[in-house]
Simulated scan of single mutants.
Amino acid sequence: MKLSTRGRYGITLMVDLAINSGDQPVSLKSIAERQNLSEHYLEQLIAPLRNAGLVKSIRGAYGGYVLAKPAQEITAGDIVRVLEGPITVVEDEPTGLRRLWDEVRDAINAVLDRTTLVDLAEMMRQGTDDGLMYYI
């Protein structure tokens, strides 16, 4: 399984919100600058995340986005499924190997579903993010 930029950047966006929002909304522009990502691309990602109830938008001069739930209640699996759809490893496979690929899919889902934004933020703080693009 390979995540597209939608899933990877979506996780990066959400971790940035978890780290930086607190009581104040965070603008997509500031996230884009910190993460060296396209603000336009982040705008495309934020809409499905908002529709799924993972983020809330705050209007106004000092508006932006905040997490809709506590960071410990949002998992990487929540984000990936919103932006990528269901996790699949192999579409069509002979019956004899189907069980193997189902187990691989289930293992991936288990890791994504037990990894919260709090866990990801801590990985980033410790420098074990291996590819997340946040600069502390």
Rank of each mutant, 00 (worst) to 15 (best):
L28R: 03
A107E: 15
Q44W: 07
G53I: 06
K56R: 14
G96R: 11
I108A: 10
V118R: 13
V80S: 04
D78K: 06
T115A: 13
R50P: 01
G60D: 06
T115C: 12
H40I: 10
Q44A: 05
R8C: 12
R114P: 00
I31N: 09
T116W: 07
T12F: 01
T5W: 14
L42N: 04
Q72W: 09
P48H: 08
S57T: 06
M124Y: 13
E39M: 01
I74D: 00
T128L: 15
G96Y: 11
A110I: 06
A18F: 04
V90W: 08
P25W: 06
D16I: 02
T88H: 11
M123S: 14
E73W: 05
G64N: 11
E93D: 03
I108M: 07
T5K: 15
V26R: 09
I19F: 02
V15N: 06
I136V: 03
E103T: 15
E39P: 02
L117H: 08
R125S: 15
S21W: 01
Y65D: 12
Y9P: 02
G85S: 13
G22I: 07
I58M: 14
Y134P: 06
S27D: 11
L120K: 13
I74F: 05
D129V: 12
I79N: 01
A47D: 11
Y135F: 13
I136C: 03
S21K: 09
L112I: 07
S4G: 09
V15T: 02
N36P: 01
R8N: 14
A47M: 13
E39L: 00
R105V: 06
L49S: 00
E93Y: 00
Y62R: 15
